[in-house]
Design a protein around this nucleic acid. Structure first.
Length: 672
DNA sequence: ACGGCTCAAACC
DNA sequence: TGGTTTGAG
C-alpha cells in the first residue's frame, strides 16, 4: 500500500490519461472502415466466440459488455464487428497494442514527469508546467480559450443561470479571485486539452483525462466522462465527490480489502470512512493500510508520479482451461518453448530499443490434480538468473518447471512409481523476465554480446525439441539430485507427437561444460558482423573460447556479483535524475517531493546512501574475477575501461548528447 | 474447472 | 531474498 504523505496542502497538478476502449481504437486505426461501428476486440474465437477484451462505445450502447463472450455480444448486438487479437505461436500477441501504447507515452512524456501505468493509461505530473504557465500566461490573461478546454467537466462548478455550459467553464477557468490551487488546475486543464489534441493528431487515438491534485483523484476523474473528455476535481469538490462514492470504486479497494470494509466495518462509501479514527483503522488493517485509508477518506494521497516510461518486467503466459489442461511433460515443454520464444523476442526489442537487459527469469505455473481433495495446491514459482538467447531461455524455463514440479509433487508425498492414472494437469504457464537494468552507453561490445544471442530460433531447429535437454548452471541448481524417472512417472506422456529426452543428470557436468562454453564464447570480435548472419551460424562459430570452465555444478554464483549486478549498481545513481530520458530540470516541486515522501525505490536509495554518492561506482578490482571470466575477453576489456571512466560522467543514465545516434549506428536492428 | 494476459507492489 | 498474494486494466 502506498505510503500517504501527511501533507494537507497538495498543490500538485496530477493527470490521469486513459485511452478510450484502446484495443478497439488500435484496430479501427488499422481498419478505418470499422470507425463509428459497434465493434469489439476478442481473443480466441474458437470457444463461444472468444472473450471480449475491449468494446467500442457504440457497442456499449447496444448493451454489449466487457467480459461477455463473442457469441453473447452477437446476440445482444447483431451488427457488432468482432476483431480478433493477433495470434502468434499459438497464443494471443499483444505487441500491436503495446507499441500503440508507447506511441501515446512518448507524446505525453514530453510534457512532464510521466508514468506508464498500464498499456493504455498514463499518469502525468504537470505541476512544473502549470506553475510556469501561471507565471507567464495565466488563464485570466488569455483572450482566446480553446474549444477543447471549454468542453471540460469541472466537478462542483456553479453553473450560473442563463450561461451556457462553455461560458461557465470559461468563467471558472479565468476567474481572478481563485485559490492558487484552482489556478494551477486551470492551467492543467489548458495543457491537458492541448495534449489530448496532440495525441489525437499524431496517433488518431482519443483519450479521456482526469485532472486533480493527486493520483487517486485524477484517476477517479478520468473515468467520469468518457470517451474523449476531461474532468477536473477542484479541491473544494473533493469532500462531496467522496462522500457518496461507493467504497469499491476506489483504486485498491475493488477487492478483498473493500469487501472487508463493507462487511466488517459497514463502510459503503468513502465518506463512511470518516467516522473511524486512524488508530481504529490501523487496528483492523495494520499501520500502513490504516493510515492510507484514513487519508484517502479525506482525499489525501501523497503517491508520487513515477518517472517511468518503460515496463519493469516482461511476461508471456497462457492458460489451458478445463479440458485443455496439459497432461504431459512434453506438451509443457512445447508451450514453454513458445512462451520463451515470445519472451526472448520482446527482450530483444527492449535491448535494441531501450538498451536494457533483464537479469531474472521466473516461471509461474498453475496446476491441479483431479480426484483428490487437496487438489488445488499452489504450484510454486521458480526463478533463476537470466541468460539471453532463445534456447537458453527455453532450457532454463523447462528446468525451472521441473524443479517446481518436483517440489509440488513432493509436497503431496510422491510415489516415484507409476501411478499413470493419477493425473496432474497444468492449467497455466508463464515465463517472465524482471530486474531490468539499463546498459550504459559506450559499451558497444557488451550490447553486441547480448544481441548476439538469438532471440528467435533458427529455422532448422524451429519447433522441435532437440535431442538432449541440457542442464544449465542457472536453472538446474536446487534440483540436482532429481531422478528423471520421477518426473517421467508423474507426467506420463500421452498426447503429443513432440518427443523429448529427459535431462541427463549423470553427465550433468559434461553438459554444463559444453553448453556454457559454446554459449558464453560466441562473441564476434569484428565490428561489422550482421546479427542475423551471426545467429544462423551461431552453432558453428569458430570462436576462441575464453572464460572459466563451469564443470562443477556445485560451484554456485552465490556471493559473486554478476555482470548484471554491475549494471544494476551503475543504474543506482544518486536520485538526482528521474528515470525517464527526460531532461527535466530539478524543480521546486520535485525538491518538495523528495523531502516529504519516502521513495519507493528504497532499496536503491539505501544502497546509494550506504556507499556514498561520490563513491558509488565499482572499482575494477572490487569485482570478482569470475565475473570477468564469464565474458569474452573483448568485453572484459571494454568493461574495464568503462568502469575506469564512468565516474567522470556518473550523472546517471547515459545522456543523449549525440552519442545516441552514433550508438544507433553501432547496433543494426535484429531481424525480427 | 473460462475472462485471458499482463503488469506492479506489498508482504513475509 | 525469492516467492506469494493482491489488485488493476
Amino acid at each position: 500500500m502506498p505510503v500517504a504523505r501527511p501533507e494537507t496542502s497538495d498543490a500538485r497538478v496530477i493527470v490521469h490519461v486513459d485511452m478510450d476502449c484502446f484495443y478497439v481504437q488500435v484496430e479501427q486505426r488499422k481498419q478505418p472502415e470499422l470507425r463509428g461501428l459497434p465493434s469489439a476486440v476478442v481473443q480466441y474465437n474458437e470457444w463461444q466466440g472468444g472473450g471480449l477484451i475491449a468494446v467500442s462505445y457504440e457497442a456499449r450502447k447496444c448493451g454489449v459488455k466487457r467480459s461477455m463472450r463473442g457469441d453473447e455480444a452477437k446476440a445482444a448486438c447483431p451488427q457488432i464487428q468482432l476483431v480478433q487479437v493477433p495470434v502468434a505461436r499459438g497464443k494471443a500477441d499483444l505487441n500491436l497494442y503495446r507499441s500503440a501504447g508507447s506511441e501515446v507515452v512518448s507524446i505525453l512524456a514530453k510534457s512532464g514527469k510521466c508514468e506508464r501505468a498500464s498499456i493504455d493509461e498514463v499518469y502525468l505530473d504537470l505541476t512544473d508546467a502549470a506553475e510556469s504557465m501561471l507565471a507567464d500566461a495565466p488563464p485570466e490573461s488569455l483572450e482566446l480559450i480553446d474549444e477543447e478546454v471549454l468542453k471540460s467537466h469541472i466537478l462542483g462548478m456553479n453553473r450560473e443561470d442563463g450561461d451556457d455550459f462553455k461560458e461557465s467553464v470559461r468563467n471558472w477557468i479565468c476567474r481572478e479571485d481563485a485559490d492558487r490551487r484552482d489556478k494551477l488546475l486551470s492551467c492543467g486543464i489548458i495543457i491537458v486539452a492541448e495534449l489530448r489534441k496532440q495525441v489525437l493528431k499524431e496517433t488518431e487515438f482519443t483519450c479521456s483525462a482526469g485532472i486533480a491534485h493527486n493520483k487517486m483523484l485524477a484517476k477517479l476523474a478520468s473515468g467520469m466522462n468518457k470517451p474523449a473528455q476531461q474532468t477536473v476535481v477542484p479541491y473544494a469538490a473533493v469532500q462531496e465527490l467522496l462522500s457518496s462514492l461507493p467504497i469499491k470504486k476506489m483504486k485498491q479497494l475493488g477487492g478483498k480489502l473493500g469487501t472487508s470494509l463493507q462487511t466488517d466495518l459497514g463502510v459503503d462509501t468513502v465518506g463512511d470512512l470518516l467516522q473511524f479514527s486512524e488508530t481504529k483503522l490501523q487496528e483492523h488493517y495494520g499501520v500502513n493500510t490504516g493510515t492510507w485509508l484514513w487519508n484517502i477518506a479525506r482525499g489525501i494521497s501523497g503517491e508520487e508520479v513515477q518517472g517511468r516510461l518503460l515496463p519493469k518486467s516482461h511476461g508471456s503466459g497462457k492458460t489451458f482451461p478445463g479440458p485443455r489442461a496439459l497432461k504431459s511433460l512434453s506438451t509443457v515443454q512445447h508451450w514453454l518453448n513458445q512462451l520463451s520464444e515470445e519472451l526472448s523476442e520482446r527482450l530483444g526489442s527492449d535491448l535494441e530499443q531501450n538498451k536494457r537487459i533483464a537479469s531474472t527469469l521466473t516461471l509461474h505455473a498453475s496446476a491441479f490434480r483431479s480426484k483428490d481433495s487437496d487438489s488445488h495446491k499452489k504450484f510454486p514459482s521458480k526463478s533463476c538468473p537470466m541468460r539471453y538467447g532463445v534456447t537458453k531461455i527455453q532450457e532454463d524455463a523447462f528446468n525451472l518447471f521441473q524443479a517446481a514440479l518436483r517440489e509440488y509433487m513432493g509436497s503431496f508425498g510422491i510415489k516415484p512409481q507409476g501411478n499413470k492414472l493419477e493425473t496432474w494437469r497444468i492449467t497455466g504457464l508463464s515465463v517472465s523476465a524482471s530486474k531490468i537494468v539499463d546498459i550504459p552507453s559506450g559499451t558497444s561490445s557488451i550490447m553486441r554480446y547480448f544481441q548476439s544471442q538469438p532471440t528467435v530460433p533458427s529455422r532448422s531447429a524451429d519447433g522441435c525439441v532437440q535431442g538432449n535437454v541440457a542442464m544449465t548452471a542457472s536453472a538446474s541448481e536446487g534440483c540436482s539430485e532429481q531422478r528423471s524417472t520421477e518426473t517421467q512417472a508423474a507426467m506420463p506422456e500421452v498426447d503429443t507427437g513432440v518427443t523429448y529426452t529427459l535431462p541427463n543428470f549423470e553427465n550433468q557436468d559434461k553438459d554444463i561444460d559444453l553448453v556454457s562454453e559454446k554459449d558464453v564464447v560466441s562473441c564476434p570480435s569484428n565490428e561489422a558482423t550482421d546479427v542475423s548472419t551471426q545467429s544462423e551460424s551461431n552453432k558453428g562459430t569458430q570462436t576462441k573460447r575464453i572464460g572459466r570452465k563451469m564443470n562443477n555444478s556445485k560451484e554456485k554464483n552465490r556471493g559473486m556479483p554478476s555482470i548484471v549486478d554491475i549494471f544494476k549498481n551503475y543504474n543506482a545513481t544518486p536520485p538526482s535524475k528521474q528515470e525517464t530520458q527526460e531532461d527535466s530540470t530539478v524543480s521546486s516541486a520535485s525538491k518538495r517531493a523528495k523531502l516529504s515522501s519516502s521513495s519507493h525505490n528504497s532499496q536503491v536509495n539505501q544502497e546509494v546512501e550506504e556507499s556514498r554518492e561520490t563513491d558509488w561506482g565499482y572499482k575494477t578490482d572490487e569485482i570478482d574475477q569470475s565475473v570477468f571470466d564469464e565474458l569474452p575477453v573483448e568485453i572484459q576489456r571494454e568493461l574495464r575501461s568503462f568502469l575506469r571512466t564512468n565516474k567522470q560522467f556518473n550523472t546517471g543514465k547515459s545522456k543523449g548528447d549525440g552519442s545516441t545516434s552514433s550508438i544507433a549506428h553501432y547496433f543494426p536492428p535484429l531481424n525480427r
